[in-house]
């Protein structure tokens, strides 16, 4: 192992030893960059978190728990937040994709939360199709420990391990290989009842929300605000435009165009048109000439093969 630096900037470089496997029978090294978590917006968890960068692609919460728990001083990990998981799993789902429709959903926050609380979010989501996610190469994670002390001790152990230069054994937890793809292939086709119920749940929630929204909108349409203005909202039309009306308008427009002065009525118009055409030809010619020059510059002289 070549000598590697211990630190770079605020990061401790923690070498991992990766055991050899049959397809690639060499022991290799992997390097983690660890530091005290320091986000722009600190929150309550920040003091007890470490930021770990350049994770192996098969890192999981379990494997990191083991890494810190068994090999780096036994600090207890509470949870791990991965950055750069390939599928955006977790977090709340945007129930409605209505941001784009340009309307502001006026829903009392309390009510919304209530609804979310009623329907378990997992039921709304489509079933996952991977049993085990793989990270993108060079991903990072925030590891949250049970308390501040564990976090600090973990970092200390990291520094110590880095100094020995021997590295820490990396034990992959993930079940990878062909089996995982087979599982994925099976998971892709969820059982019909599951799928049906998820879709139904979602659609029910959607319709409820939609109704609530249109009700709110209708209400808003009739309600002047304190200055006496009525906010314009979508859906206020009496009915669709009538076909005859549009036809009549189109007819009228056509008539007007017909009576207008034609393009070749005045002499100057013809003259200008001709000039325009000439200019166009000229421009086209110039363009072509440039193109030919360009071609010559690129390929050298024209020469029959």
């Amino acid at each position: 192992m070549p000598s590697i630096p211990l630190k770079t900037g605020p990061y401790t470089i923690l070498p991992l030893r990766v055991p050899a496997i049959a397809a690639y029978p060499h022991e290799t090294s992997h390097y983690l960059y660890v530091r005290q978590h320091a986000p722009r917006m600190e929150d309550a968890d920040t003091p007890r978190s470490l930021f770990v960068a350049n994770l192996p692609i098969d890192a999981t919460e379990g494997s990191l728990r083991k890494l810190f728990g068994e090999q780096l001083g036994g600090a207890k990990v509470e949870s791990v937040e991965f950055d750069g998981l390939r599928s955006k799993k977790g977090g709340s789902i945007p129930l409605l994709d209505n941001v784009a429709s340009g309307t502001v959903v006026v829903l009392k926050p309390g009510r919304k939360r209530k609804r979310n609380a009623e329907d378990v979010p997992q039921e709304l989501e489509l079933p996952g199709i991977w049993d085990q996610e793989v990270l993108k190469s060079g991903s990072s994670a925030v590891v949250i420990f049970v308390d501040r002390a564990s976090a600090e001790s973990a970092l200390k152990h990291c520094k110590k391990a880095a100094k020995t230069q021997k590295g820490v054994q990396w034990i992959s937890e993930a079940g990878l290989g062909e089996r995982r793809y087979l599982t994925h292939h099976t998971l892709r086709y969820p059982p019909k009842p599951t799928l049906q119920s998820r879709v139904n749940n979602y659609m029910a929630a959607y319709h409820a929300l939609e109704t609530a929204r249109s009700r709110a909108q209708a209400k808003q349409r009739n309600l002047p605000d304190e200055e006496g203005f009525v906010t314009v909202t979508r859906g206020g039309r009496v009915g669709p435009a009538r076909l005859e009306e549009t036809q009549a308008v189109a007819e009228k427009l056509k008539e007007r165009q017909k009576n207008a002065v034609k393009d070749d009525f005045y002499r100057f118009q013809t003259r200008e048109k001709r000039k325009e055409r000439e200019a166009e030809l000229r421009k086209g010619f110039e363009k072509d000439r440039r193109r030919v020059e360009e071609m010559r510059r690129r390929r050298g002289a024209v020469r029959p093969e």
Partner: peptide, 12 residues
């Protein structure tokens, strides 16, 4: 080296 080892693990 590390990446190749990762690939080997991923491919199993």
């Amino acid at each position: 080296e590390g990446v190749l080892s990762e690939i080997a693990r991923l491919g199993g």
